[in-house]
């Protein structure tokens, strides 16, 4: 099955488009390929820190969003990486020339919030695993939909008691209604 080029479905552009291609897709998962190249962002000489796995994971999740949206699934195109959990790196560095597979699978989703389990591998070798949590949707649009501008399920406004995160001017993620 032929998949669309990533630069057609992702907002990322070289050199920050780190993935090469979408190679497999199911309803709630995708696999992408990536190659570590000399001169690419974060590559130092002949190697790059394996922490780059986090960006690979984020871009693979974005590819899943975009592919689902393209398929008429109504998925959002943009998102915001909120955090990572249980990130385990089996190696300290990747090498220039490494050909990698980046796989992500949806673990949990509700409304605009979702968590994905991700795997970075080189052939049969597992290089990194982790769970990334994302906010699905355009962050600017989600912020604009805050109560100050209208109403939103995401944000319950300023409160000292809600479970909230986000930065000033950025989208808030309130999972608990403020105390009345």
């Amino acid at each position: 099955m032929a998949f669309p080029p990533l630069d057609e479905i992702l907002p990322h552009r070289p050199p920050m488009l780190l993935l090469d291609a979408l190679t497999a897709a199911e309803v709630e998962s995708v696999t992408c390929s990536a190659t570590v190249r000399a001169g690419a962002p974060f590559v130092d000489g002949e190697r790059v820190s394996s922490l780059i796995a986090l960006e690979y994971f984020a871009q693979a999740v974005a590819a899943l969003f975009a592919y689902k949206a393209r398929g008429g699934g109504g998925g959002p195109f943009r998102g915001l990486l909120l955090g990572a959990r249980d990130l385990e790196l089996a190696v300290t560095h990747l090498r220039v020339g490494d050909v990698l597979d980046v796989h992500c699978r949806e673990q949990w989703a509700s409304g605009p919030v979702a968590q994905y389990h991700c795997l970075l591998s080189r052939g049969d070798e597992r290089l990194a695993t982790g769970a990334v949590t994302v906010l699905r949707g355009d962050p600017a649009e989600l912020a604009a939909a805050s109560p100050a501008a209208g109403s939103s399920d995401l944000s319950s406004g300023p409160s000292g008691s809600d479970l909230s995160s986000g930065t000033a001017g950025g989208p808030r993620l309130d999972l608990v209604e403020p105390a009345s």
Partner: peptide, 9 residues
């Protein structure tokens, strides 16, 4: 809130 998401998972 990020912890809360992990908890819901």
């Amino acid at each position: 809130s990020i912890d809360a998401i992990d908890m819901f998972v």
